[in-house]
Design a binder for these strands. Sequence first.
DNA 1: CCAATATCACCCACTTTGGGTGAGTAGCAA
DNA 2: TTGCTACTCACCCAAAGTGGGTGATATTGG
Lengths: 215, 215
Amino acid sequence: MKDSDFLINPIRISLVEDDEIIREGFSVLLNQTPKFNVVSTYGNCEDFLKNINNDKPQVVLMDIELPGMNGIEGIEKAKKINPKIQVIVVTVYENDDLVFKALCAGAGGYLTKNVPSQYLSDAIFEIINGGAPMSTNIARKVVASFQKNHHSPLSARETEVLELLAKGKSYSNIAEELFVEKETVRTHIKNIYWKLEVHSKAEALEKAKKEKYIS
Amino acid sequence: MKDSDFLINPIRISLVEDDEIIREGFSVLLNQTPKFNVVSTYGNCEDFLKNINNDKPQVVLMDIELPGMNGIEGIEKAKKINPKIQVIVVTVYENDDLVFKALCAGAGGYLTKNVPSQYLSDAIFEIINGGAPMSTNIARKVVASFQKNHHSPLSARETEVLELLAKGKSYSNIAEELFVEKETVRTHIKNIYWKLEVHSKAEALEKAKKEKYIS
DNA sequence: CCAATATCACCCACTTTGGGTGAGTAGCAA
DNA sequence: TTGCTACTCACCCAAAGTGGGTGATATTGG
């Protein structure tokens, strides 16, 4: 599909943003190009969800901090109504937790609000073309979330054991998989607990994941 | 830092790519701009790693499919030698497994090889500025990896229970957390096993993660 | 109304888990 | 050489966890 095709069938866009100034700004900005058709704008998720089947947006620009239902819930419900809807989060918040919650909820893009106006249009085209538009800092966060902490107190073997424990395997399972005795696995786990200063599987996994000793 | 600063201190770049044509092409292309300084090019990881402390590259463009050590291992070892090195994978492979293995190994960017030459330069600036340059399709894969399967056979409550089980919690832990009896948790788990056609925690978690019923 | 969901109970047997203590081997670095 | 760490294995114990079976009740949405 070429960009010019959108002149015949402009991309249907809804905006959910409680700040009226920003909302109208985005709306005017996007409507400047005939490739976009801002079909509706809302100040909260409730109204947006109520009209979603009428508006039939292809792309939604969604704020996170909203009166009433927050954007995360809004994304979840919107995706449940129509999984094909592409949601781009546009927010000032770049707190790690929010970013990952939004992506888990179904956001397909995430922009921090200081985006130059050109980026907005680019992002919309990108998500329509199967991409995942993200601000620089967000992309880095997302990629970093895959990477492990290089300053783990755990030895290679211990990390291996803990990784298998994280998959829900029992000591015996792990022993078989690593071709060692169950007693050896037990010793590794005792040492892991000692190093992480914990006294149970759940605590160890929580700490190890938080500190990114395991993925 | 402004782009113009790189005229005084050009960005030091190493290339690891076994196809000599591509390698030389990239090298010539990047050296066309005085902001870049391609300090070395290699056809395999072994040679690259041997000279890494001499070359002192800030950015490495790394192929995955290489004779001898593959790119994934290469990234791991390079990051172990100098964690500050920024690695951008440049490859034709966009197999899910490889993408995530590369990111876990420490890659900070991932481009599929049909990148227009302009993108290469942009990507290098982006990674130096704390971003994570990715091709459209790769970014989508990465974002999609956070999202759950909307066609889960599990009920909301069952998913909740399984999610806690994945954290290594015991039935009793889960019961407390959900304010129900342990017996109720046991029933949920029995139903989960039945639905997923498995007979143990490890099997259930494996299947549920593979099918993305839980994260 | 029926099916699915969520809740709880009691049976049983086996395994798992966490903690304690001790000990041998190997490799590496001061 | 002497430590240190890592990796391996063994045996003790008691409590808790796990998987499977069967049953029940209440609520809810299509």
